[in-house]
């Protein structure tokens, strides 16, 4: 295998990991605040549809990405009003949001099926991008990839180095205790849900603007669910989200290459690899969990209604 082939494979792995990183980071922030939003898939697919539509109409990838973020946030706002404002059941609302998102995206994207546009431009730094072996991998990705990595650093810094991040983690650990200190539980939770929606929308728009530059209904193909599993796999830590996403992305790409090179395994089994990896990760994680404290935010999935 030549150096360039390795680089090409690694670049594809990173591209496959990018939407997972972005969506999982958003969900991680929401879950750290104690809100479990199972609607990631729905918000993602809406981001993909509206992102592609906006990009086609305006001709701008940036406008598409922003439209994707907006679509994800709009759905997340609905979820936030239901679960944070009205204390509706988070699991049921999240599942409904996924179904709603799949339907809405089909409707909004109906006129754009079959259209194609140029994928998002890749970075090209004279000299650096042509370095043999690493140039394309490090300096030749599109903007989404760099944004995803920057987002991981930013989320990590926010959660553990800022006062607002501390308050968010405290709310996810014990909402009643945090409320009794006078901190705005519902406000912070709502913002965290919005952030999660924006990230899911951005991840979706990456799929239709850069990864496969066209729109087709339900094109997220379960990546929203993988992102949800990834948050657990990463035990709610941003750095591990990146590692896990690369692992899952790698499983996807490996499966494609294995099929192409004609390994004598059924394609369906190889396609199932990423999902099997998720299950395995969850099993391993719960096996290694018997120390003190809890890995998951203790108030995850519990609604909170203050008296006043």
């Amino acid at each position: 295998m030549s150096l360039d082939l390795v680089q090409m494979i690694l670049a594809t792995v990173l591209a496959a990991a990018t939407p997972l990183i972005i969506a999982a980071l958003g969900e991680l922030v929401a879950e750290r605040a104690g809100v479990l939003n199972l609607g990631v898939e729905g918000m993602m697919v809406c981001g993909a549809a509206l992102g592609f539509a906006a990009a086609v109409e305006t001709g701008s990838t940036l406008a598409g990405a922003l439209a994707g973020i907006g679509a994800g946030m709009a759905l997340a706002a609905l979820f936030g009003v239901l679960t944070v404002g009205l204390a509706a059941n988070q699991v049921a609302s999240g599942l409904a949001l996924t179904i709603l998102g799949l339907g809405l995206s089909g409707l909004a994207g109906a006129g754009y099926v079959g259209l194609k546009r140029e994928p998002a431009p890749h970075l090209a730094v004279p000299g650096l991008s042509d370095l043999p072996g690493v140039g394309r991998l490090l300096f030749g990705q599109d903007g989404f990839v760099y944004a995803a990595l920057a987002l991981a650093v930013a989320v990590s810094w926010f959660l553990w180095r800022t006062r607002a991040g501390l308050i968010l983690r405290a709310i996810g650990d014990d909402a009643a205790a945090t409320h009794s200190l006078g901190l705005p539980v519902r406000g912070v939770r709502f913002l965290a849900v919005l952030f999660g929606g924006g990230c899911a929308g951005l991840a979706g728009s990456y799929l239709s603007l850069a990864y496969t530059p066209f729109w087709t209904p339900a094109m997220t193909a379960g990546r929203g669910w993988i992102a949800l599993a990834l948050v657990v796999f990463a035990s709610w830590r941003p750095a591990r989200v990146v590692g896990g996403a690369v692992l899952f992305g790698g499983a996807t790409v490996l499966q494609l290459h294995a099929q192409a090179s004609g390994i004598g395994l059924p394609g369906q089994l190889l396609s199932a690899l990423p999902y099997l990896a998720t299950i395995l990760a969850l099993v391993l994680l719960s096996l290694g969990r018997r120390r003190g404290g809890s890995l998951a935010p203790a108030a995850l999935g519990r609604d909170f209604t203050p008296h006043r």
Binding site: L166, R169, D173, A177, T178, S294, A298
Partner: peptide, 17 residues
């Protein structure tokens, strides 16, 4: 019933206020 977050450290719980 202490208003403390169990999975945060002592210093983090104090820093909240």
């Amino acid at each position: 019933h202490f208003s403390l977050c169990e999975n945060l450290t002592v210093a983090e719980n104090i820093a909240l206020v």
